[in-house]
Design a protein around this nucleic acid. Structure first.
Lengths: 251, 251
DNA sequence: ATCGGGTTGTAAACGCCGTTAACTCTCCGT
DNA sequence: ACGGAGAGTTAACGGCGTTTACAACCCGAT
């Protein structure tokens, strides 16, 4: 099953170089400039050769998105370890600031990953034989999951403020509960042992609300869509973090 | 100066029909499908003829964006009047819910207008002769201005909660102050008389913060980018509005 | 009545693009 | 030595934005 590693090495190298060049074009000139012919030109080959590696331009772009997500996750994780295990609030801040810094430094990648209409899942083709198996959502690394899986690691292992108990809207509880299970499962898989009933529903709800604010601020700043010219949005961002800190401290 | 109106009428009709078709393509198949040749085909002309009306595809798209903004503003204003002049909180709610409803009903238009990297203003080419005149920012109708100009009308004329006094970050005060002046100017122009020192800096700051949340929620919902599958985001949205109401009631 | 210019359209072309099909060539296992 | 798989090529199709040159038309001025 793994006897092909030798012959396959140049192949994955080429695959990586294609994505590297695709990403360079994305960063420097935006999504529309990521063109099969431009990539091929830079690699010294012709465009149809790329079809040996990717099904289509859209397929290639999706792989690039995955790469970007991995990089972002790595960067946020690095920020997190740099701040030290014990400093919980500092960890949350580091992830938030890291996300903003990354988005501002990589606006095209942010736009591609976080601000493109995501195709809704294709309605789960019904299985004629009732084979509704486990259907574990595959990683789907994307999205705020990057952020929240890191943030939840911090929040869950530090017995947080318990910001609210059951004032979370009833219709959201099922979704939140499912998401909590996913988070717990992810954390356990990473070898993190959890306190007894860590991650209350209220905590997950709190994280979701804060993700809305974090994403809103970053997207508005990247897109330059504040309702007026903000000469420096950092104080606004920092005041949001301060407010977060206040809410957490009021355990 | 206006003697050409008669002869120009067919021209603006054609201009409108072009944008109408462009918008149909945008709504039905997304931005990339808005193609000069497709538009021309539908109008029974050839693509180069469109250059008699718009400088380029990019120029046409910008005009479409302006149209979309006008429609959105009109829709929100209609929502606002439907709720009645006296019901302040209802007015704010109506605008917020209207914005969400519009965004969910017009995802492609929302993406184009609210989630595309806006070209930063070109650094204000320096005038050699120090002719730094008034430089009143032209309407630039776009963005949250649509929302905020409506919301501020409500907030300013109803002597709001005074949600905070001078706890707004120092570095934001200049920007906020300038924006407040713009808002006041706009409102006065609309014939709305303002209380003495309406629209405190804290009120504008509050509106800005809430715009971040409103935009964040709507964008996440349109893009399907919540960190987990949310079967119905409306309760989350409504809880945000409830929180807003609480903050306002605590005058 | 005719001229001339502005307005609105056309056809042809250029150089891009994604994608497909048919083909070479090279390597490697049998 | 053969044959197939892998990786690349060339040629082509249709579509795209855009430019250029040219035709038709309206309309006011001579």
């Amino acid at each position: 099953m793994t006897e092909a590693t030798r012959r396959d090495r140049p192949r994955v190298d080429t695959e990586r170089e294609i994505r590297r060049e695709a990403r360079r074009l994305l960063v420097e000139q935006g999504r529309e400039a990521v063109t099969l012919r431009a990539i091929a030109r830079h690699l010294g080959i012709t465009a149809p050769a790329l079809y040996r590696y990717y099904d289509s331009r859209e397929d290639l772009l999706q792989r690039v998105i995955d790469d970007v997500c991995l990089d972002l996750a790595a960067e946020l994780t690095a920020d997190l370890v740099a701040v030290g295990e014990e400093d919980m609030l500092g960890g949350v801040f580091a992830v938030c600031r890291g996300f903003r810094r990354w988005a501002l430094a990589h606006p095209q990648e942010f736009t591609l990953v976080f601000a493109s209409p995501a195709e809704q899942e294709p309605e789960a083709a019904p299985c004629a034989f009732g084979g509704a198996g486990k259907l574990v959502q595959p990683a789907k690394d994307q999205f705020g999951r990057i952020f929240l899986s890191v943030a939840s690691k911090v929040l869950a292992t530090h017995q947080l403020p318990a910001p609210s108990d059951e004032e979370v809207p009833e219709q959201l509880r099922a979704d939140l509960s499912g998401f909590r299970d996913t988070l717990v499962h992810t954390l356990v898989q990473q070898g993190i042992e959890l306190p007894d009933q860590a991650l209350s529903l209220g905590t997950v709800y709190f994280m979701l609300q804060f993700w809305v604010r974090l994403y809103g601020h970053v997207a508005l700043e990247v897109f330059g869509r504040f309702p007026f010219a903000v000469s420096n949005a950092e104080p606004l961002f920092e005041s949001m973090l301060t407010e977060l800190a206040g809410a957490i401290q009021a355990a």
